[in-house]
């Protein structure tokens, strides 16, 4: 049985990769994929802790999260399609009309 810290390390790695990707990439789809990556990092943490404490709460929560992530992915991709139709590009820099 692997150490708990190993799992947490994998989760933190996934989350960190997601953050870096989110901050550095400009393609909207990639940015969105990076948020999903962060999400999965959190889910790995949840499952690891569930195994560590020997109960099912964390795993049940993880299942909920997967469903919500799927729904949210559908919504977010639909938004990305709409944004692409508007500007003809996936560059997030094209959307800066909120500049103060």
């Amino acid at each position: 049985m692997a150490e708990l810290s190993n799992y947490i390390l994998v989760g933190a790695l996934l989350f960190g990769l997601g953050v870096i990707g989110f901050l550095t990439r400009r393609n909207l789809i990639v940015v969105f994929l990076c948020t999903e990556l962060m999400f999965q990092g959190v889910v790995v943490n949840l499952v690891a802790f569930a195994r560590y404490w020997g109960n099912l709460q964390g795993q049940a929560f993880a299942l909920f999260l997967l469903v919500i992530a799927a729904v949210e992915a559908g919504l977010a991709l639909a938004l990305v399609v709409v944004l692409y139709r508007r500007r003809g590009t996936l560059d997030s820099e094209a959307w800066n009309s909120m500049r103060g």
């Binding site: 550095t24 400009r26 997030s92």
Partner: peptide, 18 residues
């Protein structure tokens, strides 16, 4: 004072949050 920090770029907000 604050309006110059509102750049309108998504990544900028992300950096601020992080």
């Amino acid at each position: 004072i604050l309006h110059r920090y509102q750049r309108g770029a998504m990544q900028g907000y992300g950096v601020m949050m992080a």
